[in-house]
């Protein structure tokens, strides 16, 4: 990642955090989960969730369920 891209990303994160704080301070009604009440909570949840999903699918599910394309050929299926 280039230096400029990283800087842009950082800026966006800062802006989002600010908006998050604004929303929190404005006392607007939050929908549900605790992660909404924490500044940048959604960001953390998103990163954690996406990482977890990708890890689970690739490292656990794929070795378990992956078969060659020709798996069902001649399996006697209708």
């Amino acid at each position: 990642m280039s230096r400029r891209a990283a800087a842009a990303l950082g800026l966006v994160v800062v802006v989002l955090a600010g908006l998050d704080g604004l929303a929190f301070l404005s006392g607007a009604e939050h929908h549900g989960g605790f992660w909404n009440s924490v500044p940048l909570g959604d960001l953390a949840l998103g990163a954690l969730g996406a990482g977890l999903l990708a890890w689970f699918a690739r490292r656990v599910l794929k070795p378990l369920l992956s078969r060659p394309e020709s798996y069902y050929d001649g399996a006697g299926s209708p």
Partner: peptide, 12 residues
């Protein structure tokens, strides 16, 4: 609230 939280999720 809605806009910011979904923007955060997508960005992450």
């Amino acid at each position: 609230d809605h806009v910011v939280s979904s923007a955060q999720l997508l960005l992450a």
